[in-house]
Design a protein around this nucleic acid. Structure first.
Length: 407
DNA sequence: ACTCCACAGGAATAACCGGGCG
DNA sequence: CGCCCGGTTATTCCTGTGGAGT
């Protein structure tokens, strides 16, 4: 890249008319004060929490809904208001918000809880270290802390399903049961937020019934709702008349077709605007939405591939090379590729697992086919452009000799 | 109706790692 | 230091299965 081009970029950034007035409003971190079309959900949550202002334990609450339906945003809004109100009234209720997926492991969830509640600073005996304790011990220390100080605690666990997927419901069981030992002076309430509607099935019946004392389902946004949401944001984030109505409609239509995901719709709009700015265009036209759609798709795939292990990458290559895409063929190609670069190959069992993981990530698609006498297999196909795959693997020197062999 | 392919995918278990504990 | 603990990855062993051939 020459200096001229760089100069241009910086120059434009300063003097060029940027289309976006306030970029923050288009990021995931921005939560509007009031979420449209979520009044009912907001009131229910607020009402449930409100009993704790009188010292009573609120019902446990379970929120379901697809990604981008406003679950987290609604809860955060209610919590913020609730915190304001409780300090105003001088009622001490501790609200801990944790995202189980970001925390990654059950232990880290407990650690985060301990950190949030300041246990580690205020109670030496009940410290929950960064690592080293058993899950049971860590849970006990937290519960002991709550009991000793007779605290009123509300745990909000976002993406609670990933916690249960990895560690079962032991922790939730202990938390929901803990109230029995508090002898009415302290309590724990849990607000669980889950993307998966089948989450409840994975729970032990006892946990299920106590955790879902109350339930709220967040339905996906309809296309016309997404339009309203988008135009609201557009007003705040862009200069006047920069985003056409057609653009908003297209954006809403794309996101609406795909689960009614408001987050995705807004992402789309932001990326489109960024492309338009680079193009020095004066408006965000519909074509930029389509460009943005491709860019987002490519970028996420690119990141996934780059961050995966060598074996996963080789499997991807093997799938790209395979003709029929059945498991046996893919595995054979995979093993030969391994031999080629002097890498020990994994067993077929592991490869089917990796294939499943890739399917989950949406990089490939699998289809189980029965061929009668010729057995039962999967039809595996790559769903991303080969060029993306090649680009993502370009930096990997280990694979350089075999990457070039795909067409 | 029966067989039997070519796997899928569950369960148990091992090997290894990072990190606190005594 | 060796030990324990939980997480992750991988292996071994296993049972299950839809339908083309016979």
């Amino acid at each position: 890249m020459s200096d001229d081009i760089l100069d241009n970029i910086f120059e434009n950034a300063v003097k060029g008319k940027s289309l976006i007035k306030n970029r923050k409003i288009l990021t995931i971190d921005y939560i509007p004060q009031k979420l449209q079309f979520r009044d009912e959900e907001t009131t229910t949550i607020a009402q449930t929490l409100s009993v704790s202002l009188k010292g009573a334990r609120p019902s446990n609450l379970l929120l379901f809904g697809k990604p981008g339906t406003g679950k987290t945003a609604v809860v955060k809004n209610v919590i913020n208001k609730f915190k304001e109100k409780s300090t105003e009234l001088g009622v001490e209720v501790i609200v801990v918000f944790i995202n189980a997926k970001i925390a990654n492991t059950a232990y880290k969830v407990l650690y985060e809880i301990a950190e949030e509640m300041n246990i580690n600073k205020t109670d030496k005996k009940n410290q929950v270290y960064f690592t080293g304790l058993s899950l049971g011990e860590a849970t006990n220390r937290i519960l002991d802390f709550i009991k000793k100080r007779q605290l009123h605690v509300i745990f909000v666990i976002d993406e609670i399903d990933s916690l249960v997927d990895k560690n079962g419901d032991d922790i939730l069981y202990n938390f929901t049961r803990a109230n029995e030992h508090f002898q009415e002076v302290g309590f724990i309430s849990i607000i669980g937020i889950s993307n998966s509607l089948t989450f409840k099935d994975k729970l032990d019946p006892r946990v299920r019934s106590s955790l879902s004392e109350e339930e709220i389902v967040f339905n996906p946004y309809k296309i016309h709702q997404l339009q309203k949401i988008l135009s609201e944001r557009v007003k705040l984030a862009f200069h006047d008349d920069v985003v056409t109505e057609g653009t908003i409609n297209l954006c809403a239509a794309i996101a609406g077709k795909d689960n009614g995901d408001a987050r995705k719709a807004i992402d789309l709009l932001r990326v489109a605007a960024e492309i338009a700015e680079i193009d020095k265009d004066t408006k965000v036209y519909e074509k930029y939405i389509r460009l943005a759609q491709h860019k987002i798709e490519k970028d996420t795939n690119f990141e996934i591939i780059k961050n995966s292990t060598t074996h996963t990458k080789i499997v991807l290559l093997a799938i790209a090379k395979s003709k029929n895409g059945n498991t046996g063929e893919v595995y054979e190609i995979y093993s030969s590729l391994c031999k080629h670069i002097d890498n020990e190959s994994l067993t077929q069992r592991r490869i089917t697992q990796i294939i499943n993981e890739l399917d989950q990530l949406g990089l490939i698609s699998t289809n189980i086919v029965n061929q009668g006498r010729y057995g039962r297999s999967q039809k595996i196909k790559i769903t991303i452009p080969i060029s993306t795959l090649k680009e993502a693997l370009f930096d990997d020197h280990l694979l350089s000799t075999i990457t070039t062999t795909i067409d």
